Amino acid sequence: MRICFLHKPNDPYILSRARYFVDRGHQVYSIYFESKKLGAHKSIGWCETRSLGKSSTFYSKYLNRFLYPKKIKKFTRDHEIDILHINGMLNSFYLPFSRAKKQVIENQGSDVLRAPDLYPVIKPLYRFFYRFVDAVIQDSKVAQKKGLLLGAPYELNEIIEIGVDFRHFNPDFHRGKARDNLGLSNEAKMVFSSRGMEDLYNLDIVLRAIPIVIESVMEVKFVFACNVSGFMEKYGRLIHELGIKKHLIFTGQIDHTETMPFYCRDADVVISVPSSDSSPASVYEAMACKTPVIISDLPWYQGKFDRDGDMIVVPVRNVDKLADAIIQVLSGRKKVDVDSAYENIIKNINFEIENKKLGQLYKKILQ
């Protein structure tokens, strides 16, 4: 098959999908939104690529988007693309211009769970552009239900997870590499967060929990997978008010496959407490490393995992409950069944199985 992804160039999960199909002999193409950082994108064996936009000027960022349809039309026609896989419903504007044989939309959690409520004007637009898709995928029932309400077709509408790549995320490799990089002893407790800095992810709540945690667990570091400059610009005043700077470590951008697994493995607990979520791959990756996780109480995990068995669940934006959960896990007073969580991930959220399902869907709509 000739498969073309329209995507952000550094989305590690789309890149992993692309690599899967390249490794199986398919001709894989990329239409991507230009970025200054293309490291991981360059590692894929693309047949051909096309960038959309080359700078951050007002013209290229906004007005130039009206030129993108012409590029997409030409690229998909010239390369006789079988499947155009568009990542994110917010990019559905380009669907009518594709000359691929079939179009697939991958609903992103925020695209369907948050954006339509924040910007109601896009609801009728979603309903219109869903008319141009041949299949829809998403990573959870929560996202699927919301997509259907917004006009997604009922037929050829499937839940296909990103899946955990166990070649990278697993409990078998040696502990200590991330701690060595951070200068942390084995005795120090490590709380790790790899989620973004958007308000959605409630990092202010995580920061406010730290003074409570350090009253009970003195030797603890909270490690954030983000750049210190951006973090301090947004949360610097709060950090100063709380007096917690010495308990924070910022790693900068972490390579998803080469480095992130070591941080998941070395952490004593991984926290992910957003206000909205669909099916968080970062949580599953921590589980695959047999590391305890603390999550916020959202619908996505229900029916998949045992509450307070496979993970610890806390109310959304509740500082005291989050702090108590972290203390309980770090002190050993509350145990997470990491073996059960690991087995669940292998059976139900497996990279190989999920992408095999995606390949079967591609073939089905081409028949």
Rank of each mutant, 00 (worst) to 15 (best):
G230C: 05
K61C: 05
F21L: 09
E155T: 12
A143I: 07
A188E: 15
Y68W: 15
I365D: 02
I271T: 08
G163L: 08
D255E: 11
T57H: 02
L182Q: 13
L63Y: 08
H85C: 01
K102I: 04
A281E: 04
K8Y: 13
Y130D: 10
G53Y: 13
N348R: 07
I294D: 02
A323I: 00
N350K: 09
I72A: 04
I162S: 04
R175H: 08
Y20L: 07
V22H: 04
S98F: 09
V228T: 12
M218N: 14
V121H: 10
I353M: 10
P299V: 09
I249S: 07
K321R: 14
N202S: 14
S140Q: 10
I295N: 02
S60K: 06
E258I: 00
G88D: 13
A209S: 15
Y154A: 15
S16Q: 13
K37S: 05
S16M: 15
I14S: 04
D308V: 00
V217E: 09
I345F: 13
R237C: 01
P292L: 02
K364I: 00
R195D: 10
C264M: 14
G332S: 07
A225D: 02
P12A: 01
L242V: 10
E352N: 03
V228C: 04
G45Y: 10
S278I: 03
K321E: 14
A178Y: 08
D117L: 03
F132A: 04
D310F: 06
V329C: 01
R131T: 08
S275F: 12
N227F: 07
V217H: 05
L84C: 01
F173L: 11
